[in-house]
Nucleic acid binder design. Structure first.
Lengths: 252, 252
DNA sequence: AGTCGCTAACTTGTATGGTAGTATCCTTGC
DNA sequence: GCAAGGATACTACCATACAAGTTAGCGACT
C-alpha cells in the first residue's frame, strides 16, 4: 500500500495525523489493527520521528492505543465512549440550535438553505464522505451561528467516535433521505425563528442517529471495546460513580 | 531553575506535559513567555525529543503556540476562548447537575458532604492549588454522578482556560467563602433532590466565577490575546458567523 | 543618515542510531 | 507429548546529528 502525503500542511507530522485520522474514522484501518511506526514511515517515505509525533496526537484523540514496547493499535470503538459523545452533542447542540433559531438573520438563512441544497444534490450520486461532509457543515454552521466559534471544535472531537460507527456501513438511500428530512425540519424551524420546534427537531434527529449506531453495534460486535485487540485489555480498575446506558435529555 | 521530573508516569514526554501544563495554568510561565525545546531539555536533563513531543501535546491543548523555525510561546489568554469555555461548562454542567439531583443516592450524598467538608478545612490554611483541587473535585463528582465518565474530560479541557485566569490572582478569603457558599447551595439542592434549585444554584455559581474573570481581564490586559507575544500575531482571516460577548443560558 | 546585504546565533523539523522491554518460535530436556 | 528456556525479531522510547528557516546585529556602500 503506497500512501500519499499532500503537501498542504506545515509539517509532515500534522499531515500524517490528518491522513491516519481520516483512514481510522472511515474504517479503512479497522479497530484493533496494529500500526507500526516503522511500517508507516516506510510507506510514506519519511522517518519515524514525524510518524511517532502523529501517533501521539492520535492517541490524544482516542483513536490510537499505544502500548509501550508492545505496539500501537487502532482504538476499538467503545460503546460507552460513543454514548458519552452523544450525550455531549445533545447537550450542546440542543442549546445552540435554540439560540440559532432566536438570532437567525436572512444571511444565515441563505447559507442554511444552500447547505441543505448541497445535501440534496449529493443524495443520489454523492459519495459517503461527501454526504457526511455536507452533514457536518450544517451542524457546524448551526453551532457557530451561536457565536462561540470554539464550541464546534469540542463537538467535532466528540463526533469522531460517532462517525467511526457511521462509517461501518455504507449509508443507504433510506438513511440519507431520513437525515435530509431531519435537517430540513431543523433548518425550517431555525429560519422560522421557532426555538422550541428547532430544539425538538434536533433532538429527534440526534435520536435517529443514535438508534442507527445501536443497530450497528449489534452488527459489528468484533470491533467494539477492543475484542479484536491483539492483547488482552487490562480491566480499568477505577471505580466511577457508575455508567448507565445512554438516555435522552430531560430538559427541553 | 532546576526543574524536577517525577518518576510516576510511563514516558518522560507525558511527565513533561504534566509539569509544563501545571506551570502554565498556575501562571508560573507567563502568557507570551518563550519556551525553547533546547532550554527545557537541558533544565530537565533529557534530550529534545520528549520535550518536543510534550510541546506538541500542549499545543493541542491550546496552551502553547509553536511557530516553526521561530519559537514556542506560552499561549496568551484569549478572552473569546475563555468565554467559549464558560459557555460549554454552563451548557453541560447545568444539565448534569439537574440529572445528579434527580438521581442522588445516599452514597452520593455522603461523598458530596465530604468534599464540601474538605473545602471548608482548606478555607483558611489551604494553598490556592489545594483549594482549586477540592473545587474541581466537586464539579467533577457532580458531572460523573450523571453516569457519563468522559464528559468530565471535555469539561476539564475547557476549564484550563478559565483556571489560567483564576490563577492570575491569589484567591482572597472573600472569594473562597463565596465559592464555598455557592457549593453548599448546589450540594444541598442536589442532596435534597431538587433539580430546579440545583440548576439555579449552579448557574449563579458559574456566573460569579465569570464575573471574577471579567475583573481580572481588565486588571491584566497585557496577558490577554497575545499582546505580550514576542512576534506580531497574524490576523485570523477566517470569517465566522460572528462572535458576541458571553451571555447566560436562556434555557433552564 | 539610510539602506542593503552578509553573518552568526538562534529556532523548530526531520533523520538516524542505540536501548530496553515484549512476544514468538524453536529448541532442549524431561 | 509437553513444559521450560533461550535466541530472535519485533516494538516504542530516548538521544543525537543534521537540515532548513528566521531573526538580530553589524558593517559596508550609496
Amino acid at each position: 500500500m503506497a500512501l500519499q502525503l499532500k503537501a498542504n500542511r506545515a509539517t509532515v507530522a500534522d499531515e500524517i495525523v490528518a491522513l491516519l485520522r481520516d483512514r481510522i474514522i472511515r474504517g479503512e484501518l479497522s479497530p484493533g489493527a496494529q500500526l507500526s511506526e516503522n511500517e508507516i514511515a516506510q510507506q510514506l517515505g519519511v522517518s519515524r520521528t514525524p510518524v511517532r509525533e502523529a501517533f501521539i496526537q492520535l492517541r490524544e484523540q482516542s483513536l490510537l492505543r499505544i502500548l509501550p514496547q508492545r505496539g500501537s493499535f487502532v482504538a476499538p470503538i467503545n460503546l460507552s465512549h460513543v454514548a458519552d459523545s452523544f450525550f455531549l452533542r445533545e447537550t450542546v447542540e440542543l442549546r445552540t440550535v435554540g439560540v440559532a433559531a432566536e438570532n437567525c438573520t436572512s444571511k444565515n438563512a441563505d447559507r442554511l438553505r444552500s447547505i441543505i441544497e448541497r445535501q440534496r444534490t449529493l443524495l443520489d450520486g454523492g459519495s459517503d464522505s461527501a454526504f457526511v461532509k455536507a452533514d457536518d457543515a450544517m451542524h457546524r454552521y448551526l453551532v457557530e451561528m451561536c457565536g462561540r466559534p470554539r464550541v464546534w471544535k469540542t463537538i467535532s472531537d466528540a463526533k469522531v467516535q460517532i462517525d467511526r460507527m457511521r462509517c461501518l456501513n455504507a449509508q443507504d438511500q433510506t438513511t440519507r433521505r431520513r437525515i435530509l428530512a431531519d435537517h430540513v425540519r431543523i433548518v425550517e424551524a431555525v429560519i422560522g425563528g421557532d426555538p422550541d420546534a428547532a430544539v425538538g427537531a434536533m433532538k429527534q434527529h440526534l435520536h435517529n442517529i443514535f438508534e442507527n449506531t445501536e443497530r450497528l453495534a449489534k452488527q459489528y460486535p468484533g470491533y467494539m471495546d477492543g475484542q479484536t485487540l491483539a492483547t488482552k485489555r487490562k480491566r480499568e480498575a477505577k471505580t466511577r460513580p457508575g455508567e448507565r446506558p445512554y438516555q435522552s435529555a430531560t430538559l427541553t
